[in-house]
Amino acid sequence: MNNISQRDAFWNRVYEIARKDTDVVVVSADMGAPALDKFRRDMPSQFVNAGIAEQNAVTIAAGLCLAGKKVFVYAIAPFITLRCLEQIRVENAIMDIPITLVGVGAGFGYEDSGPTHHIIEDIAIMRSMPRIQINSITDSVMASAFADISCDLKTTNYVRLDRQVLPDLYNEGSDFSKGLSILRESDDCYIISTGSMTHTAVDIARHFGERNINIGVIDVYSIPVNGNALAEKIRNAKKLISLEEHFLPGGLGSAVCEVLNDRNIPVRVKRLGLSTDRNYCYKYGGREAIRSYYGVDMDSLKKEIAEYLSVGSLCGAR
């Protein structure tokens, strides 16, 4: 599945599930995808186009769920979260009506579209509410698996898909039940990351590994964070780095610090992500160019991490 987008992997699997389960319904805010086109053609009675009206899409989905349906609601990530946040809060968080919110374009996925289409606040906002599980998808294998997992969840689930085709980091059949995976082991230093930044974390770890500095990588894809599993892994670490394509307040780094603080684990966390001091940006020319504006492009990260690990002489090496 190396050359398939998370979106296509996810919806292809939903298609297969829906063929066998007529209670599966997709509510789309006028979003397209090859698998969705096929879905609409082959199962028109299970496909609802709500138009570009995300607030209504979420309430319709909640009503469908109350009528016994298993509902996926799909829109561009900022709009399936922030545009209809009040609906999610009431219908899903307060009333506990379980639906699957599917947003595409995590972080700077819509790299050419400007800040209206970037979503760099959703983890902070969605994790502030109970009964919402964020699933920040890393690759197409995970995307496909979470189509199945979503059908079994008894709570609302926000599937946060990247828009770009990223290489697969996981093998078919991987177990995603823990909410996090150790992609690279280390004795004393880990990067804890999510979504597309996990790919960056793997590249950074490889870079330092080639220079005999072993950094582990922990991919956190389900939030709330599985605190016990994370604590077990990092309890003896000396240095931790959180890395996210998300504003720092309330994001993954904050969640990691909460895990440590609540368990009295005295390890310092270097939080790398988007500083709100840099505001929103109108930068184009690709994802790496936007990341560069916030100082989280590959070169900046290598430098910053090298300084944090006090191995500054290695920082500039490519």
Binding site: V48, Q55, T59, A62, G63, A67, G68, E91, I94, M95
Partner: peptide, 27 residues
């Protein structure tokens, strides 16, 4: 009581969703 409401403009959408679900289920 079927729903929590107080934040206006939402119950109507839930009602429409239930109505659509009823039609899908032939209820």
């Amino acid at each position: 009581v079927e729903i929590t409401s107080g934040s206006l403009g939402q119950g109507f959408g839930v009602a429409a969703g239930i109505a659509l679900g009823a039609k899908m289920n032939r209820e």
